[in-house]
């Protein structure tokens, strides 16, 4: 099975440690992972901010880059949800929308390529639990951790308890429930810049809930939400650090996760 890592532009640029953790983790589980150098961005920022043409161009590029792989793994619920929910819409032309039911998109069309590639794209915990069939990834992380499910993981991808099942199997890890976990943190991409007052108010409530757990680490499957919550935690000197799910799952007792820390 040829497995490609879709690192996502945010992780590539700002959180390379998460990408290194995914590589470490997947190799430990016997999976040879490739990194297609031509990848850039899924186009979510453009589409969700109201620039569908730019987004469509990036979606075409994504499909070109990843079509040849058997599985594409993304350490981001949000970007995986973008591909799964929005690519078919971006590929839907007015003509295709009027096509008789039961007929697929014409072969070779963008819509056909999307229909082919999208089902092979997995968020990390989906790939681990559903494709590799593991929940104990051999990780060791002796810390008190709370998990924020993030909206696109929860309501977009319906990851359900996959991430927490993985965390529960980590030796030494104490998983504490997060009050109001299903509420949005207020990031919302460019929402954070367009509606900063509401975004900050939502984050203040999220941070309050995080600190009441007494956790040392706030974990999520999305670094963009974590960047927003974490930026507020640091500003408030709250003493809680953020970690991507992959970074916790890559950590082991022998410390062979050094690539993670760079």
């Amino acid at each position: 099975m040829r497995v490609a890592l879709f690192i996502t532009c945010v992780n590539d640029t700002l959180f390379p440690g998460t990408g290194r953790a995914v590589v470490t983790l997947l190799r430990r589980l016997g999976c040879d992972v490739e990194f297609p150098r031509a990848q850039t961005c899924c186009g979510q920022m453009h589409v969700n901010t109201g620039y569908p043409e730019e987004g469509r161009r990036l979606a075409r590029h994504f499909v070109d880059v990843f079509a040849e792989y058997d599985a594409v793994v993304a350490p981001s619920g949000s970007c995986a949800a973008m591909v799964r929910e929005q690519y078919p819409r971006l590929a839907r032309t007015p003509a295709a929308a009027g096509a008789p039911a039961g007929e697929g998109p014409p072969p070779g069309s963008f819509a056909a390529e999307v229909a082919e590639t999208v089902p092979k794209v997995y968020e990390l915990s989906e790939f681990l639990v559903d494709v590799l069939g593991v929940t104990d990834v051999g990780a060791y992380f002796p810390h008190r951790v709370t998990y924020h499910p993030t909206c696109h993981s929860l309501r977009g991808l319906h990851l359900e308890d996959r991430p927490t099942r993985l965390l529960e199997q980590v030796r030494g890890l104490e998983l504490v429930p997060l009050p109001g976990a299903d509420e949005c943190c207020g990031f919302g991409g460019t929402f954070a810049l367009k509606n900063p007052a509401i975004s900050a108010a939502m984050c203040a409530d999220k941070v309050h809930n995080v600190t009441t757990t007494g956790a040392e680490v706030l974990c999520a499957a999305d670094n963009s939400c974590l960047m927003h919550i974490g930026g507020t935690l640091v500003r408030q000197r709250a003493g809680v650090r953020i970690m991507h799910l992959a970074e916790i799952l890559a950590a082991t007792e022998s410390g062979d996760d050094r690539t993670v820390r760079g």
């Binding site: 690192i7 992780n11 590539d12 640029t13 700002l14 959180f15 390379p16 440690g17 990408g19 290194r20 990194f35 150098r37 954070a192 810049l193 367009k194 900063p196 900050a200 984050c203 960047m227 927003h228 974490g230 930026g231 507020t232 640091v234 500003r235 760079g262």
Partner: peptide, 21 residues
């Protein structure tokens, strides 16, 4: 609007793709 209430993350010296290369 971002930095009014949040710190920005530390920018890493090397991107993932450069590390990979």
């Amino acid at each position: 609007a971002w930095t009014d209430t949040r710190d920005i993350p530390d920018i890493p010296p090397e991107s993932f793709r450069d590390w990979w290369d």
